Amino acid sequence: MVTVEGSGPTGLDLDERTGAVYAADFANIQIIEVTPGSRAPRLMPTGGGPLSIALSAYGRTAYTADQASGTVSVINLRKGTVARSVATGDGAKSVAVEPCSGRVLVARVALIALP
């Protein structure tokens, strides 16, 4: 078990290929990555108020629905950095990746498909 003191995880996703678990940490504006056998998490930045997280099909990219900043953050998991932020409008709540096309969907007041 890995504990992250003071964290506020709000969403999880699993990379089934590697067994790594990713959590959106609303309290600390970050992603928490825990890999099998790890004793300490890897922490990566994201946009303000991440509520939900989804991984790309090959687990190289994570997407977070950032409620406070009204964005989806696109995180390069290899580098551990935000590659870009895409405006969604206020209140992004949830994000998902459609497995066949790779399209990213965001739920808020309206459903938005990212280009």
Results as ranks from 00 to 15, higher is better:
G89K: 09
E98W: 11
G48C: 09
E33L: 15
V34Q: 07
V74Q: 06
A65G: 10
R103G: 00
P99L: 01
V4A: 05
R78M: 06
R108C: 02
R78W: 03
R84N: 12
P41L: 01
I112H: 08
S85H: 13
G37P: 01
D13F: 01
D15K: 15
M44F: 11
S101Q: 03
S69A: 13
S73N: 05
G70W: 00
Q67V: 10
V97W: 04
V34H: 03
A113M: 02
A107H: 08
L14V: 15
V82W: 08
A54Y: 10
G11D: 03
T10N: 10
G8E: 06
T88K: 01
K93P: 05
G91T: 01
G102K: 09
L12K: 09
V74F: 08
P45Y: 05
Q67E: 14
I29C: 13
R17H: 13
A20L: 12
V109R: 12
P9D: 04
G37W: 10
G37C: 04
Q30G: 11
P99T: 00
S101N: 07
T10W: 06
G19D: 06
A68W: 00
S7G: 10
F26I: 01
S101D: 02
I112L: 13
K79R: 15
L51F: 10
G37I: 12
Y63E: 11
I112Y: 06
T3N: 07
A40V: 06
A23E: 04
G91S: 13
G89H: 09
T18E: 07
S94M: 07
I53R: 09
R39I: 12
D15E: 15
L55Y: 05
G89Y: 12
P99G: 07
G8H: 03
R42P: 13
S56T: 03
S56C: 06
S38W: 05
S56A: 01
V86F: 07
A96R: 06
A107S: 12
S101T: 15
M44C: 00
T81E: 15
A96G: 07
R60C: 01
D90E: 14
A110E: 13
V34F: 14
I31M: 13
G102S: 07
V95R: 09
L77K: 05
L51C: 04
G59L: 11
T61V: 15
S56M: 00
A24L: 09
A23Y: 05
